[in-house]
Design a protein around this nucleic acid. Structure first.
Lengths: 210, 210
DNA sequence: TCCGCTGCTGAACGCATGTTCAGTAATATA
DNA sequence: TATATTACTGAACATGCGTTCAGCAGCGGA
């Protein structure tokens, strides 16, 4: 698995192969021996570097959270304007598409973190919820949105729509015939989402422009 | 675990305890010995009745799908009118709340089915997507909604909002302080959802009634 | 009454797992 | 060059897993 011209440390190789396999099948379904084989090392070396399989899992968690932070940092730093642009509402999916190479195992790993129920997942959702709340507040302050009578629910609702394509990627892809995390899929999803956010989906009073 | 006045067959007890434990921790994290202990029988009896652990998992899958079918049957049968009532849009969560006793392991098991990626999950999502599409079509035919330019995405979007409270129940509950599958939580969520479906959340033109 | 069948158990088997450990090669330190 | 430290391995270990199997109790039909 490890290419000949690979000069990363064995530690990094093990960590990356674990990330890939964990994202693919879930940590419980992957054995230390499989990770070691994928990294081209002995099982004992995995333990030597990470203490235990649980230690490796935590190291991968930390690594992915750091990547996620870097992603969000670029998003809320140099491109902060986008956060207050309704046309960039699909921020999470777009961030993933922009900052991660195609085929990256990170989205699938983030999905598992969110769904596994551990402390890392709670932390991740907390950050996302605060981000969503802040975004809504910003939109309201900019006069671009209304807070509604229950802003917390509204922020959670927005976040869920962002997360849906991550959590249900396969199912949505099968139903629509397009991977919702591809460029085309994101565009399709965002277009519809913006229309609904803009004016809802119930029947307009007759005479309204479409 | 099995109460003294319990006259269900051991087979049913095993199946129900497996359902509960599978929903709680996931099938891979539950051992045959734990299921047997919870049901008050020997591990060998589990195999005797279901052939293998995998057989038991499939039996539980089938059982839950049957419960789900019965739920939807009542929903689209005697109360079909509700499907075309926008006020009943939170149909999945409400159905769960209405037809399942509080604390039932079924919602958590459905969640696992949807997320596990097996054939049963694909089947389940397919049914839900068809239901959502049909509901949207019905609403449009009744003049209560507009199909949008991409009805498939719109139906998937509606479905995702229904599923969000199921998939992210714990996180949403922690963020909002209310279990979104409780009566109060559903009401809170549905209220906000209906407002957004009704008129969106972007800033209204000045002069519009709130 | 005997028979066969189903429900059920305790003990055991084979296997895969995470982890340990003694030991070797390589690299840095002195 | 000598030494200490690190990177790494192969073999082994204990444990817990799903599963098997011989046999026991109870019960309805011949």
């Amino acid at each position: 698995m490890r290419s000949a011209a690979d000069d990363r440390t064995a530690r990094a190789v093990i960590r990356d192969e674990a990330l890939r396999l964990f994202a693919e099948r879930g940590p419980d379904a992957v054995t230390v021996r499989q990770i070691a084989a994928a990294a081209g090392v002995s099982p004992a070396l995995v333990v030597h570097h990470f203490g235990s399989k649980e230690g490796l899992r935590q190291a991968v968690d930390q690594h992915v959270l750091a990547l996620f932070d870097a992603m969000l940092g670029e998003l809320t730093g140099g491109r902060a304007r986008d956060l207050y642009d309704p046309a960039a509402s699909g921020s999470l999916a777009e961030a993933i598409l922009t900052y991660l190479p195609p085929g990256s195992p990170v989205p699938a790993y983030l999905r598992r973190m969110l769904l596994a129920g551990g402390g890392a997942g709670r932390e991740l959702f907390g950050r996302l919820f605060r981000l969503s709340s802040g975004m809504l507040t910003g939109l309201v302050a900019a006069g671009l949105a209304v807070p509604g009578q229950d802003p917390a629910v509204r922020a959670a609702f927005l976040l869920c729509n962002d997360l849906a394509v991550l959590l249900l990627r396969e199912h949505i892809g099968a139903a629509l015939g397009t991977d919702p995390l591809s460029g085309e899929g994101i565009a399709r999803w965002a277009r519809e989402m913006l229309v609904i956010y803009g004016s809802g989906l119930l029947a307009s009073p007759p005479g309204d422009p479409p």
